[in-house]
Design a protein around this nucleic acid. Structure first.
Length: 547
DNA sequence: AAGTTCCGCGCC
DNA sequence: AGGGCGCGGAACTT
């Protein structure tokens, strides 16, 4: 395999530098390429199946995609740097121990060189990419777990390629269907002001509260209004209003629901985000501390169920929608090697498997207990079930408990592949110190305990959520490879769920590829694991038909 | 007028 | 009441 480095030249220049290295890092050759010729050059070199090494996929790849060029593999220095800088598996490396560099900066804008030579600016800039790659290769070579790190960095980089490709191709979106949904729920699109059904509900609420001028969109007004009408509430949130059974309750809850739909995914959103029948969210790989993706703009990861009917396959095409069933519990079973929990996961519905194992009485209990273990519930129905979960799945519970204890002490924790949690900030450390200092007050001690428990819940969840994100990245990378020679393509990703837009004739084959990819992801991460990673797969015309 | 913070709620 | 997010709107700050 060869590594092809794309070196940033002077931003004002009309060319970039391509440097070809062997696997061992030996330089084969260097050439300057005019920016205008770059897509053609990349297309040519793809025949050798190189790994492209560049600073930032979100910056380099979109222009190539726009020119119709696809890249098979890359190494995203910025994303990989962020992982290596913190990873417990790269602890002694220069990247982890050195002072902050521009590679630690935020996404927009390429990293600037640390120190520019007085004599040869151009050379200094190009060298930084080479040096950074060298540092990253060193960190991996010196690692206790080079295999895991290598897999993590490859998965992260491939994720960045996929994110750019999904943005490029877009989610097929029917504005007609979207408008039908909105009109059905809210009334026809008004030229100005509130849609009819929303206005009618507002009137109903104001009448029930006997306050004709109440502004329902103002939290303060609404809270005052509710109290004036005899509602004993602390806030205007749904869960609190739901508890009170008065005439205004029902229309108010309905109003809040519809007002939310209108502001978050109404006609304005549609005009802003849907173009030429496609929704193109801006994914941010690695945007969440745990390794999950984030998005910026459009709220793609919060598409409400109520408008998913607007996601529609093109004529003659299908959507293959798949989600991993109870992914986090399954990941926990695999990480901890908990045979009993793996056995429960042999059931397509893991929660039912927990019931069948006699640990709890019903599925609802199984779910709440499991999520409580992963999120760190300390009170309520979930906490009550914890002893039974501990008895049934001792190794799984021990793993999350250990992660929680580590966080409470201020230690870091790591995912299966080595993505590592941030250390708690200075204020956290100060609180801990204040509580253990001579003459610490009861308040200090209480505050420190509370901070400790809060951080413990974060680290507890980090190891599971982060490892689930790793599984999902591997799943998607494997699927991308299987789709390489098909017309079908990935269009959407949502933590534990993927969507492929596929010609109808290929859809069954794609569904099979999705299943094979899940198997492969399990083996990539956990080797010969006893855990099944069950999927729900649906071949549908519109997103709301899935599940 | 523009930027920031908080609330409430959508998703996993 | 138990983890991770993004976003719109209101309220507040500058």
């Amino acid at each position: 395999m060869t590594l092809l480095l794309l070196l940033d030249d002077d931003a004002r220049a009309d060319h970039v530098v391509l440097q070809e290295l062997t696997d061992e890092g030996d330089r084969v050759r260097t050439e300057k390429v005019l920016v205008a010729h770059l897509p053609e050059k990349v297309r040519e070199r793809e025949a050798d199946k190189p790994r492209w090494v560049w600073d930032d996929t979100s910056r380099r790849y979109p222009p190539l995609l726009a020119a119709g060029v696809r890249v098979d593999r890359c190494h995203d220095l910025r994303l990989c740097h962020a992982i290596l800088r913190r990873s417990i598996y790269a602890r002694g490396s220069a990247i982890a121990t050195g002072p902050p560099t521009p590679w630690d900066g935020p996404r927009p804008g390429a990293p600037e060189p640390v120190e520019v030579s007085l004599f040869d600016e151009d050379r200094a800039e190009t060298l930084d990419v080479v040096d950074e790659l060298q540092r990253q290769l060193d960190a991996m070579r010196e690692s206790d777990e080079p295999g895991k790190l290598r897999l993590l960095l490859a998965a992260e980089s491939t994720g960045a390629l996929i994110a750019a490709e999904m943005n490029h191709v877009g989610v097929p979106w029917s504005v007609e269907a979207h408008d039908r949904i909105l009109t059905g729920m809210l009334g026809p699109r008004p030229r100005s002001g509130r849609p009819a059904k929303l206005e009618a509900l507002a009137d109903e609420v104001r009448e029930a509260l006997a306050q004709p001028n109440l502004n329902l969109d103002s939290q303060q007004d609404l809270l005052r209004g509710l109290r004036a009408a005899g509602y004993d509430v602390e806030s205007t949130s749904r869960w609190e209003i739901k508890e009170i059974d008065l005439p205004a309750t029902e229309p108010l809850l309905a109003y809040k629901k519809l007002a939310r739909l209108l502001s978050a995914n109404g006609w304005t959103w549609m005009d802003t985000w849907i173009h030429d029948g496609r929704f193109r969210p801006d994914y941010v790989p690695g945007g969440v501390v745990t390794g999950r993706w984030a998005t910026s703009g459009g709220g793609a990861l919060q598409l409400p169920a109520s408008i998913r009917g607007a996601v529609r396959a093109d004529e003659g095409w299908k959507l293959v929608v798949a989600d991993a069933a109870q992914l986090e519990p399954r990941v926990l079973a695999a990480m901890s090697g908990d045979a009993a929990m793996a056995a429960a996961g042999r059931h397509a519905d893991l929660y039912q498997g927990v019931v069948d194992a006699g640990i709890v009485e019903n599925r609802a209990q199984a779910k709440v207990a499991m999520l409580g273990a992963i999120y760190g519930a300390t009170t309520g129905p979930s906490a009550v079930l914890m002893p039974r979960l501990t008895q049934g799945f001792p190794r799984a519970v021990a793993l999350v408990e250990a992660a929680a204890r580590a966080g409470e002490r201020g230690d870091v924790v790591a995912t299966w592949l080595g993505r590592t949690s941030p250390a708690p900030d200075a204020a956290w450390q100060d609180a801990l110190a204040a509580a253990s200092a001579e003459g610490a007050g009861a308040d200090d001690v209480r505050a420190a305990r509370r901070r400790g428990r809060d951080w413990g819940r974060f680290t507890r969840n980090f190891v599971v959520q982060g490892t689930a994100a790793e599984w999902a990245l591997c799943w998607m990378a494997s699927l991308r490879r299987r789709l390489r020679d098909r017309e079908a393509h990935l269009v959407f990703f949502l933590h534990d769920e993927v969507m492929v837009h596929s010609p109808a004739s290929e859809a069954d084959g794609v569904a099979e590829a999705v299943r094979e990819s899940a198997l492969e992801a399990g083996h990539l991460l956990f080797g010969d694991t006893a855990v099944d990673f069950a999927l729900n797969v649906a071949v549908v015309d519109s997103y709301d038909e899935a599940k």
